[in-house]
Nucleic acid binder design. Structure first.
Length: 467
RNA sequence: GGGUCUAUCGCCAAGUUGGUAAGGCACGUGAUUGCAAAUCACCCAUCCCCAGUUCGAGUCUGGGUAGGCCCUCCA
């Protein structure tokens, strides 16, 4: 497959260093709050990448970390009085719940920062011994960015700019303002870990380097991982710093391919709490089906900015509807699985740097051809088995179409309403049998008032929720 | 201020080596339907502006204009 690498800013053929093994590491959430749409986008992009890699025949090991020790977590715990362990467990579970709703498969490894302290301390030790890091009198340890000639080679920035324009107050003991903390000493006890530099906690950037080394790197590897992913905002300074640490501590580059997904904005504005437009996934899931959100969030190329709007989401839903309509036509049929050209083309499209636009277009064309074929030969066994195989392939590769099609179209309707609808439909069918079309249409209007659309078919009358 | 990315039909959005604009939503027409829905068929843009390179540019070069993101924790 071909992938765009943020470091070289080019799309090139992806080749793993130890084929067929492929390692993928993605920066996961800091669990101090509920996941928002940006977390969803990132998780979905790399879920798709993982699926495509597996479908392409690679033996993938996918790791996504959970940052469960951090300033924001500590502050929130102090504010609410909840223990850090309870807080991070609670939000980790919430994260899992939200991602499950989007159909995001769990990574193979989900390392926690607090479980990787040993690996991080080893890396600090190596950096200090090789003079790439220094301890301050307070017990902080900083990475010496000046000591790494390749520093900033990932993000392509220039040192002067980073320094002169820096808006951060730099520590009096830092050699350069760009130097970043590997270990932060902690005065008040409670939330700290023991270390040779005193009680404290690790700097944020360190955990990824350490986890990759611990879980994914093989002896003699040229790169820590084949692919390192995360949000575009992480390119600098987070990934730049990770790369520097690994380069200086271990003598190899951290990743062969750097993959960054674009940002999610809401109605043209960046999500932020101060703007009051932060969009929690759990809230979105109350209004829209997880699968619709999945289809919508994946519909734009992963490197593009994604502007969330309800109008676009509904347009996406109508597109996904067509897949379920086709599934409905063949509901209950079981056939043998066959290979089709469509499947090859779909995998090829996604194998080209995850070109979802082409993939979606292929799916639409397949659906259209399938409907046309079924219109002409509804009982064609070969056709049916091709269509069902294609749908199954889409489900595996993209995670679309796993639901019961009838339930898909009846999302969010409670049981009482369903029973009422069924009763009204029955009454309407009686009226239809009696050719009392006036009454039949009146009943349809009554049902429509409930937000329900009816469809008469040779198999009977079905209903769907209207938007 | 520095870095970086983007600007294609009403809306969303593809378009690796330059050769004459995918797909979806919405809209319109027709087939089908008691009516409708669904489905099918048809219809629907010359690619932000200016100047270049070229036989030929959305696709390359230069200059504008507009916007996103990063430079502070951040997916």
């Amino acid at each position: 497959m071909r992938l765009f690498d943020s470091k070289t800013k080019t799309k090139r053929e992806f080749t793993p260093q130890n084929p067929p093994r492929v390692t993928l590491y993605v920066c996961g959430p800091t669990v101090y709050d509920d996941a928002h749409l940006g977390h969803a986008k990132s998780a979905l992009v790399f879920d798709l990448l993982a699926r495509v890699l597996r479908a392409s025949g690679y033996a993938l090991t996918y790791a996504k970390n959970i940052t469960d020790i951090d300033d924001k977590i500590i502050n929130k715990a102090l504010q609410t009085g909840e223990s850090i362990g309870s807080l991070t467990t609670r939000y980790t579970e919430a994260y899992h719940r939200d991602m499950d709703a989007l159909g995001v498969a769990r990574p193979d490894i989900e390392p926690r920062a607090t479980e990787s302290i040993g690996a991080m301390l080893e890396m600090i030790d190596a950096l200090i011994r090789s003079k790439h890091a220094y301890a301050t009198p307070e017990g902080d340890v900083y990475f010496d960015t000046q000591s790494d000639p390749a520093y900033l080679s990932l993000s392509g920035r220039k040192q002067e700019q980073s320094e002169t324009q820096s808006r951060v107050e730099s520590s009096a003991h830092k050699k350069q303002s760009a130097d970043f903390a590997l270990w932060k000493t902690v005065k008040e006890g409670g939330n700290s870990f023991d270390s040779p530099y005193g009680a404290g906690r690790p700097g944020w950037h360190l955990e990824c380097s350490a986890m990759i080394q611990k879980h994914l790197t093989c002896k003699g590897d040229t790169f820590g991982v084949d692919i390192h992913g995360g949000g575009a905002d992480l390119l600098f300074p987070h990934h730049e710093n990770e790369a520097a640490q690994t380069r200086c501590a271990l003598g190899h580059e951290l990743a062969n391919f750097w993959v960054h997904n674009g940002f999610v904005t809401i109605d043209g504005e960046k999500m932020s709490k101060s703007l009051g437009n932060s969009f929690f996934l759990k809230d979105a899931l109350n209004h829209y089906q997880g699968e619709v959100l999945r289809y919508y969030l994946l519909s734009v190329h992963y490197r593009s900015d994604f502007n969330f709007s309800e109008e676009d989401l509904l347009a996406s839903k109508r597109r996904l509807d067509k897949l379920y309509r086709l599934k409905k036509r063949l509901f209950g049929l079981v056939t043998e699985q066959v290979k089709t050209p469509f499947q090859t083309e779909l995998l090829e499209a996604l194998g080209d740097d995850l070109n979802v636009s082409v993939a979606y277009a292929l799916i639409d064309a397949m659906i259209q051809a399938a409907n046309e074929g079924l219109d002409q030969n509804p009982k064609d066994k070969t056709l049916r088995s091709q269509i069902l195989s294609n749908l199954a392939f889409i489900q595996t590769l993209l995670g679309f179409g796993a639901q019961n099609p009838f339930e898909y179209f009846q999302f969010g309707i409670d049981e009482a309403t369903k029973m009422r609808i069924d009763a009204l439909i029955e009454a309407r069918n009686d009226a239809k049998k009696a050719k009392d079309f006036a009454r039949s249409d009146a009943l349809r209007d009554e049902i429509a008032a409930l937000g329900i659309a009816l469809m008469d078919t040779p198999q009977g009358t079905f209903w769907e929720r209207k938007e």
